[in-house]
């Protein structure tokens, strides 16, 4: 019984790992959708550069990956929105913020992966545009909050 449980946990964890990028993969080759992937290697190079804003460079150095999905094709917006919300609910992301302002919906999801690794997702939905920013690494919401605060 214990062996079966261990195997099940392994298979589930395996599925969880492989399923993490499913959303971005799904729309990576879709017309009107642009996806951006920046790896840890490239993010790690940023602190060495003469960047104007030190805080962004500092946080960028803590990230393992950054992904952005942007869609300016109105017909695709509802589908991406529904898929994204279903995806983050399915994989037990915590909804940290839900702001509806002048028809623009802003959702922030978060998930802790242990060992100090966190994943945060910004879902910005407008009538004819949707943007998803997914960051993963040794960052906290406080770090993200301070980026705009210190720049001002």
């Amino acid at each position: 019984m214990k062996k079966i449980l261990i195997i099940m946990v392994m298979v589930l964890s395996c599925n969880m790992i492989f399923a993490q990028d499913a959303l971005f993969k799904k729309y990576s080759n879709t017309n009107g959708v642009s996806t951006v992937y920046i790896s840890k290697a490239l993010l790690g190079m940023m602190p060495k550069m003469n960047a104007g804003n030190k805080d962004v460079s500092k946080i960028a150095g803590k990230l393992d990956r950054l992904q952005v999905l942007s869609c300016e094709r109105p017909s695709l917006v509802p589908s991406i929105k529904n898929n994204a919300i279903a995806y983050y609910n399915k994989y037990k992301y915590v909804e940290m913020m839900n702001l509806n302002e002048n028809g623009e919906i802003t959702l922030i999801y978060g998930k802790s992966h242990g060992h100090g690794k966190n994943e945060f997702v910004l879902l910005s939905i407008e009538k004819d545009e949707i943007n998803i920013v997914n960051i993963y690494g040794n960052v906290t919401l406080k770090d993200i909050k301070q980026i705009a605060n210190q720049r001002n």
Binding site: V68, S124, I135, A148
Partner: peptide, 17 residues
Amino acid sequence: AYAETQRALMKFSLSLN
């Protein structure tokens, strides 16, 4: 990559704030 990272993080931070 830096410009995109900066833009994305700034957008995230502004939305959060």
